[in-house]
Design a protein around this nucleic acid. Structure first.
Length: 619
DNA sequence: CTAGGGTTAG
């Protein structure tokens, strides 16, 4: 990023304005300012701006100040820059407003440059502008510049200011300079909750969970923001259960949650598949009148979708007043996840009808739905419209959806051709998708070539290795399958152990393969055996070929019988993908027991009912 | 005479 900002050289004198002091014009200025403050988008600003120019108020710093702020708020930073350039002798207020606006629009580097220009124009910085530029330095991770500004602030004796100290802590924390961060903190008179919150978040950014917890314990009188920051940090670092523990503790201590808090907690629920707690949070939102803004709305939709309650997700959608692209994206992805491809496409259409411009994420969601639902023509149509109507250059994810679309439909050679004509390099996910299609459609000749490409491409993730190994075993090539497994072991890439979760009475029960830890294990295994007998009477035969190791069939049956998802039924969350055998068995169990069973695996949802599954046996 | 900043940031 470069700094294209040029500050106009101001003329030596301002044009005299005879009306400047009369009462009428004072009133007019006040009116203009309050009009500006009410603007919600850039189209509303332009006519007011025209009026300002007509009335000769263009150089009025108070007016310009409001203009800059409202432009930033309306995401019109270019407009703000134009106005700033036309302003003669901008003062420190105007520079601050511009730096703030640039930071808000993500142009941190540019913001820092504007500050530098200000000092070059001999304008003395005050605490406010120091604050703004330190924010920019922290976000830009510009350690050198931030230190220089720290030095300037010391010289100007602005470092006694609490806000400046807080921003210094934030800046050093974001840059990972924890010693300097602590030094500033130690110079504060008391243990400031806000300062500790900032430090916690910096530690979490670096994955230093224990240090974050240590400073959290220092705080007396933790407020909502502090608790939220803690919960958010734990969620961001994958500690979902711990985050929920802290949320419960927060409730016990009588600290009220806000919009931020519920978004974080809902994200934890979504990732754990904890529907009961998720519902509880939803009722909390209603009870305490927490505004269902688009963040909260998306979080609720996401939680319900990922917990398999897509109908509830739809209900939430209708209740979101100001739907944004993210709101629609959440529900589209939710439909795709739950095997409702046609609904995903319909929702995508509705989004467009309601004047919301689909983003690249919307396209990933809807194309994913098309591939899972076998909607080949619709998928292609959307893929083309994305480029022509919306000028979105396809990313590797979009290409991946199309490869998947063709591959799943059995058109593996076309998919292969498509890969060779893409404008981007195929990644291991795209090749993996093709390999998976080759496996399902038993095109071993092409599959073998793809497997070789993947193996030669250098390191790839565990999932890909497992896929290659499974491809070889389904082909009966145990030797090759074992070799891939061996390579996986040698590279110290461990297969994540299969694990399934089920929530009963607000408690999360966890099952690993062949798990014997559960207190009710006797009853559970007895039931499992009973089920096993029943489904065998219904024609179930263990699909021993899904077990990749080349072991005796009898042993394989046992290995399958204890796959963890069979141990927990009804509403199951599994960390890996479900295997063919478990899928078959659960279908039958749903028929025999007449129960709906919902299972989420790593990729999608399976709604089992009366012997069939929403995925159409295709996942 | 009339202007600014909260700490989490999904």
């Amino acid at each position: 990023m470069s700094c294209s900002m040029q500050v106009a050289t101001p003329p030596s004198r301002l044009p005299p304005n005879s009306n400047y002091h009369n009462r009428e014009s004072q009133q007019h200025r006040k009116q203009t300012i309050s009009l500006l403050q009410k603007c919600r988008n850039v189209n509303q600003i332009a006519p007011i701006h025209a009026n300002i120019i007509k009335n000769g108020l263009e150089q009025d710093h108070f007016i310009v100040f409001e203009l800059l702020r409202v432009c930033s708020k309306c995401d019109a930073i270019d407009y703000a820059l134009k106005i700033f350039r036309r302003t003669q002798e901008p003062n420190v207020y105007l520079y601050t407003a511009l730096v703030d606006g640039l930071v808000l629009s993500g142009s941190y580097f540019h913001g820092i440059n504007v500050y530098v220009q200000m000092t070059e124009n001999f304008i003395v910085p005050d605490d406010f502008v120091i604050n703004s530029v330190l924010k920019a330095c922290g976000l830009e991770l510009d350690l050198r510049m931030g230190k220089e500004i720290h030095a300037q602030a010391l010289k100007l004796e602005l470092c006694t200011n609490r806000q400046v100290k807080l921003k210094l802590i934030e800046f050093y924390g974001k840059c990972g300079e924890f010693e300097d961060m602590m030094r500033v903190f130690d110079g504060m008179p008391e243990r400031d909750v806000v300062a500790i919150t900032v430090m916690m978040s910096a530690y979490f950014d670096c994955g230093l969970i224990d240090r974050a917890c240590d400073v959290f314990d220092l705080v007396k009188g933790k407020d909502t923001v502090c608790w939220t920051s803690m919960i958010d940090g734990l969620v961001r670092n994958g500690k979902m259960n711990k985050a929920l523990e802290y949320f419960r503790q927060m409730q016990r201590e009588g600290v009220r949650a806000n919009e931020f808090t519920v978004v974080c907690v809902l994200s934890a629920c979504a990732q754990l598949g904890s529907l009961e707690l998720g519902k509880w949070i939803h009722s909390y939102v209603k009870k305490y009148d927490i505004e269902v803004n688009h963040f909260v709305g998306s979080a609720l939709i996401n939680m319900y979708s990922r917990c398999g309650s897509i109908e509830e997700a739809e209900r939430v959608l209708e209740g979101v007043k100001e739907k944004e692209d993210s709101t629609y994206n959440s529900i589209i992805v939710g439909f795709a996840l739950n095997g409702k491809s046609a609904e995903a496409v319909k929702m995508f259409q509705r989004m467009i009808n309601e004047g919301i411009r689909p983003t690249n994420i919307s396209f990933v969601g809807v194309l994913n739905a098309c591939s899972h639902g076998g909607l080949v023509d619709v998928g292609f149509e959307i893929f083309h419209r994305m480029q022509i109507d919306y000028c979105i250059e396809p990313q590797v994810e979009h290409y991946g959806c199309i490869v998947d679309l063709l591959g799943r439909a059995g058109r593996v050679d076309e998919a292969h051709n498509f890969i060779q004509n893409m404008k981007v390099n195929p990644d291991h996910i795209i090749w993996g998708s093709l390999l998976s299609a080759c496996k399902v459609h038993q095109n071993y000749e092409l599959g073998e070539r793809v497997a070789q490409i993947l193996l030669n491409q250098g390191p790839c993730d565990t999932g890909t290795h497992i896929l290659i190994s499974n491809f070889y075993s389904s082909w009966g090539k145990w030797e090759d399958a074992l070799q891939v497994r061996a390579k996986l072991k040698k590279n110290c890439v461990q297969k994540e152990p299969g694990c399934s979760l089920i929530e009963v009475n607000n408690e999360i029960h966890e099952f690993l393969l062949g798990d014997i830890r559960h207190p009710q294990k006797k009853e559970i295994y007895r039931k499992l055996e009973e089920m096993d007998q029943k489904v065998r009477l219904n024609g179930y035969c263990p699909q021993v070929d899904v077990v990749s190791q080349d072991i005796m069939d009898q042993e394989k049956e046992w290995a399958l019988a204890i796959h963890s998802e069979k141990l927990a039924t009804l509403r199951i969350v599994k960390n890996l993908r479900v295997c063919d055998d478990c899928h078959m068995m659960i279908k039958l169990v749903s028929k025999i027991t007449r129960r709906k069973i919902v299972m989420r695996d790593r990729n999608r949802f399976h709604h089992f009912e009366n012997g069939s599954c929403s995925c159409g046996d295709y996942w």
